[in-house]
């Protein structure tokens, strides 16, 4: 079901258009207060896009709307040309809080295969898919048999990524996935995502507050700005497919792009501070 779902999604996306995900005039309000306003962007198939903005700007709300977990108060989300009203097949989500998004009573493998088993994949096929996905993120059969809490934080987030990969996603949504791990592990996981995205031709939308991370990972960066938040600008990141933590980040081009995104975000933070000061 998942597989057919994502195939259908890919066909639909590839059939008439190359757009995997589109937000059109998306807005959201909590108790009458606008958090997001007229968000417009498109994500093409096989693209790595980061949505970056300061903490509290409404990034998670945006991602929840994109995932169909939350209905937006205005505008629409289109996945494969269809409006999203609930979670759709072929869209996988990775949460920031790996320890709470993994089931502590189930083995790593069972965690990874849950979406497959729940959607009707046979035990044997799910096991095979699960082990394959775990191998992709660098976890072996021994780790597959352990409980998630026996692993380090970075390893647990790898399990969450493997769970999303086993789902064979046409679109991978990630909510601050590396915000809860240390800097060294974060760099490892960033490189892992770059490699996986390239090798599996994944379409990834990653939400982060980290400007360096957004520039390092993305083909395009969507910078959120203002209160209520809207898209300040979409920055193309022409850094090529091969990137590395030291080399890429020390180029003048990286610094310029980083500065550009930073300026876009500072604009929004400045106005947010002004609003707070008035209140």
């Amino acid at each position: 079901m998942t597989i057919t779902g994502s195939k259908k999604l890919q066909q639909a996306a590839g059939g008439n258009t190359d757009v995997a995900l589109a937000a059109r005039g998306l807005g959201h309000a909590y108790h009458g207060r606008n958090v997001l306003s007229s968000i417009d962007f498109e994500v093409r198939r096989g693209e790595f896009v980061c949505i970056v903005g300061p903490s509290g700007v409404g990034k998670t709300t945006l991602l929840r709307c994109l995932a169909g977990l939350q209905a937006s108060t205005s505008g629409t989300v289109m996945i494969a040309g269809e409006p999203v009203t609930e979670p759709v097949p072929g869209v996988a989500l990775v949460f920031q809080d790996y320890s709470r998004s993994l089931m502590p009573w189930a083995s790593v493998l069972h965690n990874v295969t849950l979406p497959l088993r729940a959607n009707g994949t046979s035990r044997a096929a799910a096991r095979e898919e699960g082990l394959r996905a775990l191998t992709l993120v660098g976890l072996d059969d021994v780790a597959a048999g352990m409980y998630p809490w026996q692993l380090s934080g970075g390893m647990q987030q790898r399990v969450a990524i493997a769970r999303a990969l086993a789902y064979n996603p046409a679109l991978l949504l990630m909510d601050e996935p590396f915000a809860s791990v240390d800097a060294y592990t974060r760099a490892d996981l960033e490189d892992l995502m770059l490699r996986l995205q390239r090798e599996l031709s994944l379409t990834v939308v990653l939400v982060t507050h980290d400007i360096d991370e957004s520039v390092y990972l993305s083909d395009r960066v969507i910078a959120l700005n203002g209160s209520p938040a809207s898209v300040a600008d979409i920055v193309e990141i022409p850094l090529g497919a091969e990137r590395d933590q030291v080399g890429t980040k020390s180029t003048a081009e990286f610094a310029a792009l980083r500065g550009r995104v930073h300026a876009l975000i500072r604009g929004s933070r400045g106005s947010a501070d002004a609003t707070e000061a008035r209140e």
Binding site: T2, P87, V88, A92, F95, S101, M103, L114, A118, Y167
Partner: peptide, 28 residues
């Protein structure tokens, strides 16, 4: 209402499966 419920919803885990495989063990 936990994150596991949200995770299950995003992966389109059917309600019955959620109750037996996620909700019950989580409430134990």
């Amino acid at each position: 209402e936990s994150l596991l419920a949200e995770m299950s919803a995003s992966f389109r885990v059917p309600r019955r499966w959620f109750v037996t495989h996620v909700f019950f063990p989580g409430s134990l």
